[in-house]
Design a protein around this nucleic acid. Structure first.
Lengths: 217, 217
DNA sequence: GAACTTAACTTAACACTGTTAAGTATCGGA
DNA sequence: TCCGATACTTAACAGTGTTAAGTTAAGTTC
């Protein structure tokens, strides 16, 4: 069964070549510059050749998105080692903002454009691949240890509230940083204030739980 | 000078006809369906006729956006009459979310897409036309009355933090409501929690100032 | 080994998009 | 009456995603 496997391998190879070209174009010149024809130019194929490997442009972008989500979640691996859950939440918030600011093009398609995430291959619920699961895990731990205000018992709801606040920070910066209408304060200052607001607004007594624990890592 | 004025009036009339057609198309079928040709079809002109009244499509959309921003700000007029500034902030937050949920297409172009707001005619700083100014006003009043935590003395920074949280709520809903990845909690519940988080996280002692005042209106 | 099939392309074209160049009426003023 | 500006139209250009039809090379089968 030599030739069959070789063909399979070659097919996979050209697939990743297309994806790489698209990713490169995407990162350097923004999502608008990612056209089928420009991708084709880069890999020296005709534009229609891409359709043999991807259903359409959306499917191609979705697959790009898929790997982006995975990489994004991997970014929290180091943070997962922080023992103190409050500090872990703080660090996660900062990491989230860093990702968005450093990868605005990616952030836009990942979180700012309506897109059906149908054929996605990420292991849902696994904190190492699913960033939402990571956040929910931190929230659940904080709840279990009694850090959260007593009326907050729904980990999903709390996670969604936290995500909303952080997402607002990043998406507003990406969409409106050029806007001279508002006298924007430095992103660092805003980030710090939002994180403090989250901690103070959702947790008990100044962001520390009922009993102060040793700071992690 | 009769004819001259009549011409001027007619010119203005066709301008608003174009804008109305675009607005209608926009609200009913989303921004993607707003094409020069479809606008032209509606008003029974050729597509190029529009270019005599608007520089290009962006200018047309910008003008649409302009009136949308004004209308958006007008929505806060009633809320401005609430005496208690904490309650006013709460109501403003709810109104903000309502606007976004009821006008997702408008919200997207207004706040979720990078667009240079250059030739804008809104009276900056006037709370009746500029919603950011309204928010900043509420924040400033809360600060003056000592409701804010002592370390928060910058009204712009605080306003931007509040706006971020509310914007995150709305924009995440608009972009990801169809997403089955996350088990979304009801929008109402999230809104309530975010507003509570803002109040508790930024103000002193349970969202009330140093001294409880009578509730307004 | 010849015939057939299929995978992996290419070229040409369609139906769109925003936008521009060039041409045409219509109308107010000298 | 002629002139020039105003307000258009038609035709076209350079893009876009996508599809239909044709081509070529390789593998499979008789």
């Amino acid at each position: 069964m030599g030739p069959k496997e070789r063909r399979e391998r070659e097919r996979e190879e050209i697939r990743t070549r297309i994806l790489d070209a698209a990713r490169e174009l995407f990162a350097s010149e923004g999502v608008e510059s990612v056209t089928m024809r420009r991708i084709a130019d880069r890999i020296e194929y005709s534009p229609t050749a891409i359709y043999f490997h991807f259903r359409d442009k959306d499917a191609l972008l979705a697959e790009l998105c898929d790997s982006d989500f995975r990489e994004f979640a991997h970014g929290f691996a180091e943070i997962a080692r922080i023992l103190n859950p409050v500090e872990r939440l703080r660090a996660a918030g900062r990491a989230y903002v860093d990702f968005g600011i450093n990868n605005p093009s990616h952030y836009r398609v990942m979180f700012m454009t309506p897109k059906v995430t149908s054929d996605i291959t990420i292991a849902k619920g696994n904190p190492e691949e699913d960033a939402y699961a990571f956040l929910k895990g931190v929230v659940a731990e904080l709840m279990a240890k009694g850090h959260f205000r007593d009326e907050l018992t729904d980990a999903d709801l709390a996670a969604q509230v936290i995500w909303s606040a952080m997402h607002g920070l990043v998406s507003l910066e990406i969409a409106k940083c050029k806007d001279e209408w508002v006298e924007w304060r430095p992103m660092d200052a805003r980030t710090g204030q939002v994180i403090d607001m989250i901690i103070r607004g959702l947790l008990k007594t100044e962001g520390q739980g009922p009993r102060a624990e040793g700071r992690g890592s």
